[in-house]
Structure formats: structure tokens, C-alpha cells
């Protein structure tokens, strides 16, 4: 007997936990953005200072990771439900998987390189 949860349970859990983080992030940062900026036009300096702040920066990176994990479980379910041809299914899973990994690295690179002016 393995102590590890089965793949199905693990995906179910990843899907729900990432959904909760995405929702909390959108609520907290959405309201903060409205409260801090209050509909005023945001300058480049303010935007960059905000994104480069350690708390925001790490929360944003975690957000993108949660988003991509959530998207991966979701798109995987959809592909496995509707794409009957096995070769096509694998081609699509590999394409989406690689593009999600690329997007994770792309965002990580973008966000980690941001410094306050």
C-alpha cells in the first residue's frame, strides 16, 4: 500500500487548492489595487515599484504557478474527455504541457528581473 494519494485525488486537490489561492489573490490584490490607486492613472514608476515589492513579487509568482497548475489539470481533463485519438491526445498534452512550462519560466524571468527604479 502506498501512502501517496492516487493521481486522481492529487489532481482533484491541486485543482481545488490552486483555485482557492487564485481567488484569494484576485480578491486581495484586486481590492488593494482599487483602494490604493482608486481609478487614478497609474504611472510606470508606481507600477514597477508595486510589482518589484517582495511581497507582491512573490505573491504574483505563486499566482502564475497556481494559475498554470490549475490550467494544466483543467486542460488535461478536457483533452482526455474529448480527444479520442491516442496520438493526437498525446501531441496535444505534450504541446500544452511544454507551453505551460515555458509560460511559467517566462513569467518567472519577467517578474524576478523587475527592480524598483
Amino acid at each position: 500500500m502506498s501512502w501517496r494519494p492516487s493521481a486522481g485525488i492529487r489532481n482533484w486537490l491541486v485543482q481545488r487548492l490552486s483555485a482557492i489561492y487564485i481567488t484569494l489573490f484576485l480578491i486581495v490584490f484586486g481590492f488593494k489595487a482599487i483602494g490604493v490607486w482608486g481609478g487614478e492613472p497609474v504611472s510606470y514608476e508606481v507600477w514597477r515599484a508595486w510589482v518589484s515589492h517582495p511581497v507582491t513579487n512573490i505573491a504574483l509568482i505563486l499566482f502564475i504557478f497556481a494559475l498554470l497548475l490549475h490550467a494544466w489539470v483543467g486542460i488535461r481533463d478536457v483533452i482526455m474527455d474529448y480527444v479520442k485519438s491516442v496520438p493526437l491526445r498525446y501531441i496535444m498534452l505534450i504541446s500544452f504541457g511544454l507551453s505551460f512550462i515555458s509560460m511559467a519560466l517566462w513569467t518567472l524571468r519577467t517578474l524576478l528581473l523587475v527592480t524598483p527604479i
Binding site: W47, L68, G74, V78
Partner: peptide, 29 residues
Amino acid sequence: RISGILMVLALPGLIYLLQTSLSSPEGFS
């Protein structure tokens, strides 16, 4: 499902906007 797929397809565009907005004052504007 449809909204999930469409939002996934919008992701590269949104990351590109994030990157451009942070790259330079010109990119931001």
C-alpha cells in the same frame, strides 16, 4: 469548460502585456 479553455488561450497574450508593461516607460505607455 469553454471559459476555462478561452482563458488559457488568453494567457500568453496577458503575460506578454505584463512583460511589455514592465520593460520600459515606452512599453508601459
